[in-house]
Design a protein around this nucleic acid. Structure first.
Length: 298
DNA sequence: TCCAACGTTTCC
DNA sequence: GGAAACGTTGGA
């Protein structure tokens, strides 16, 4: 949950008074919701006898032989594919995908990137149609809160994740914890998966370069809008950033987004993995568990 | 075009 | 490693 933000931030002279100005609005429902029984950390920390993931999936020799990744790589280096896939989170996401495939939830997907992109493109219009048929809420601002999103999230998650798990899954979900991306954190439009998904990442500040691709252009990430600093509405006018605004070009230190403080791929992101609210993956994991239980039972 | 602020580089 | 300075991006 995003409530995991460090609310014990710096106590500026202004903090107390300005925290009163922080809108005490509730977290959006999508962040509060946890409709499935298990979190990702549950799967990581407590192997479930009901779904023995490791028993289902044989680790590849490469994974078995792979030594622990030294964390001395430079923060700016975007995680390579193998890095992400074999990271703790990525590995479990791979497990989740495997579980889904075995449980019949996941349609097998094109192996080539070309096919993958085709699949992603074709999945999007289909999804749009489905959304429109559902009630004409086709526009992209579905990322907002509301009962509709609630419904979509709880009932349509598996379908939402099919493009992820197919063409896009190897990319995006593994990327989320590593980049600090928050699903439901305001950057993501829930209906935007597939081709729009990757565009979303790029558009929201994840440059092709930071995504591991070429390009090298640097894009600005956006504030999450939900952490305590983001909720502050006033500058302290006392910190160095405020006093040095003209030359510093920096937002007030006490308003600096917690997410932006973390460097993509940096250690701060590592720590996020355990506490990361990977709702989608958790949900699919839960689904996979239910399905596989049923499937295994007959 | 201006401005806020993110990202990178440089300095200490 | 943190702060300052500056380039740059993105929105109004």
């Amino acid at each position: 949950m995003s409530t995991a933000v460090d609310i014990a931030g710096p106590s500026s002279p202004d903090q107390a008074h300005s925290s009163a100005k922080i809108p005490n609005e509730p977290l959006r429902p999508s962040l509060k919701r946890s409709s499935h029984p298990y979190t990702l950390s549950h799967y990581i920390s407590t192997p479930s006898p009901a779904v023995d993931v490791k028993g289902l999936i044989q680790p590849s020799p490469a994974q078995e032989q792979r030594p622990a990744q030294p964390s001395n790589s430079k923060p700016r280096r975007a995680p390579s594919w193998p890095d992400m896939w074999e990271s703790p989170s990525g590995l479990h996401l791979a497990h989740a995908a495997e579980l889904l495939m075995r449980a019949g939830l996941l349609a097998l997907t094109p192996a080539t990137t070309e096919q993958a992109s085709l699949g992603a493109q074709s999945s999007q219009p289909a999804k749009k149609e489905a959304a429109e048929a559902k009630g004409g809420k086709g526009d992209g601002e579905g990322g907002g809160s509301g009962p509709e999103e609630e419904e979509e999230d709880s009932s349509g998650c598996s379908t939402d994740f099919q493009p992820f798990l197919g063409a896009w899954f190897p990319f995006s979900p593994a990327l989320f914890p590593l980049t600090g991306f928050q699903m439901g954190g305001g950057h993501w439009r829930s209906a935007a998966v597939g081709a729009e998904g990757i565009e979303g990442l790029v558009a929201e500040g994840y440059s092709p370069g930071s995504l591991g691709g070429g390009g090298g252009g640097r894009r600005k990430r956006k504030r999450c809008g939900e952490c305590v600093p983001c909720r502050r509405q006033t500058n302290c006018e006392q910190c160095s950033s405020c006093r040095n605004r003209k030359r510093g070009h920096q937002i007030c230190k006490y308003r600096k987004c917690e997410e932006l403080k973390r460097k993509p791929g940096g250690p701060g992101f590592d720590s996020r993995v355990s506490g990361f609210d990977l709702r989608g993956s958790d949900f699919t994991l839960g689904l996979a568990q239910e399905r596989s239980n049923g499937a295994l039972d007959g």
